[in-house]
Design a protein around this nucleic acid. Structure first.
Lengths: 253, 253
DNA sequence: GCCTCAATTATGATTAGACATAAAGGAGGC
DNA sequence: GCCTCCTTTATGTCTAATCATAATTGAGGC
């Protein structure tokens, strides 16, 4: 059995990938109903003609994705779909504009270095310290048409060189990506009515529904930046394609 | 070396999990800057005192999460953070209400069996067939206060027994979960202004910004249901905690 | 100097074997 | 009958070894 088998197999896909897809379709198509017990690892391994390790990898992946529930001794069951939950992606603004075939441009509206205030907690999530902050406001443009209004606070201590940067037409997000490479962020998405000032900047009627995304970014323990992105609701949307629950997804730090 | 090592280790965490966390913090804290070459598998394995397979599992996971880029021969590099992208979770309505400590209730407003129309394509994503559809509208209530307005189409052919169900106070989503267990769905999130009718039902001012989630569900190739959920923007929000990009995330079928 | 091709090398996949762990189920004692 | 303890069993983790694959590197030919 040490000879690798040469049976036809979808090009570029591995053995356990193939098994994962096969079992997933058995579940989604209803052949294996929720709650049903599925054969034990060793039997499935034999049936697919692979080792138990490979089968384990495939079943483990399906369990992480939420399709299977595995317990020692009890064996493996098809999961009960828990809830109508899902996961949507927030894209990078520049990528999003360019992917829609339009020209991207950033235009700085205002820029100030000032002491931190109480109201900044909205963007930072925590009560602001005594330090100075860099406050920015700018527009992301698609074909020179307003696409997204950005209001941002930057911690000059965490982002070296931020106060020396003028952000004339370089989006602060893009600059921060270079300056403070790895970071973790938390996000919040809401719908809000555009205020008069916001509506004017985005060339919208006052009160127009907008998608608001607030992102707070940390690196090495300190807050780096807090940003509020305001998208005209008519123009922007988040999209996701999805099966069961999020599983453990990416990072949780 | 066949004796399992008994070095102290975070309780409940496996060896590769421990390594994953360790390396992730090296990256996030900036000790390993983006683009830098990291030691080869064999050396890291030796350094952590594990086999190459275990090291491979850890590095493979970090690569799936987007922290590392691995290429044959070239070795493994710390990834360049690509973009300010992220992923947010859409929770199940009932879970969400209950998790906020309020009582959940569903209240059916209208129910109709009728022929499919052109306008239904908005909820289905595809031009409707010639068949009949079940049309429903109802309110999700939190402590008897409007929380979410649901407008739904159901395919009676794909969801057996749907026409016989009256949905008096059972949310169609919950019922469908039982009747058509496994399915895949696509989602779209937007901000919209409440129309007069919607505002009245949700007890909001006309024009109030609302979060609109449209979900289209398929199972075994046929469309099962299309639903539009309308949340008062002031009350509802999506939240995510996140590191790098989505990786490959959950399912893509 | 430049191109081609083969050797090298790091990651990727797979396997068989071993031990760990948790839980179900049954045997035995009371 | 009921409780306790031990055996059984299925999954979980880890290892060492092997082959596969892709890309870089360098040697040789022109």
């Amino acid at each position: 059995m040490s000879a690798p088998d040469r049976t036809v197999r979808a090009k570029g896909s591995t053995r356990h990938d193939h098994i994962v897809e096969d079992i997933r379709s058995l579940i989604v198509d209803g052949c294996w109903p929720p709650g049903s017990q599925i054969p034990v690892e060793t039997e499935l391994a034999e049936r697919y003609g692979v080792s138990r390790m490979t089968m384990n990898k495939a079943l483990g992946q399906l369990a992480r994705e939420g399709f299977l529930v595995r317990r020692k001794k009890s064996g493996t069951q098809v999961a009960q779909p828990r809830a109508e939950s899902a996961v949507v992606a927030i894209a990078d603004i520049r990528d999003e504009v360019r992917n829609s075939g339009r020209a991207y441009r950033f235009h700085l509206l205002a820029r100030r270095v000032r002491a931190a205030r109480e109201e900044d907690a909205l963007l930072l999530g925590s009560p602001p310290g005594r330090a100075e902050v860099l406050w920015l406001q700018g527009l992301h443009l698609a074909d020179d048409h307003p696409f997204c209004l950005e209001t941002r606070l930057i911690n000059p201590e965490a982002a070296e060189g931020a106060t020396g940067q003028d952000f004339g037409d370089l989006a602060p997000g893009a600059w921060l990506l270079e300056a403070v490479p790895w970071s973790v962020a938390s996000h919040r998405v809401r719908a809000v009515n555009a205020t008069a000032a916001e509506a004017r900047l985005l060339a919208l009627p006052v009160g127009e529904a907008c998608l608001e995304i607030v992102r707070r970014t940390q690196a090495a323990g300190a807050w780096v930046t807090g940003v509020r992105l305001l998208y005209p609701g008519s123009e922007h949307q988040l999209v996701a394609n999805f099966g069961p629950e999020a599983g453990d997804g990416p990072v949780r730090s």
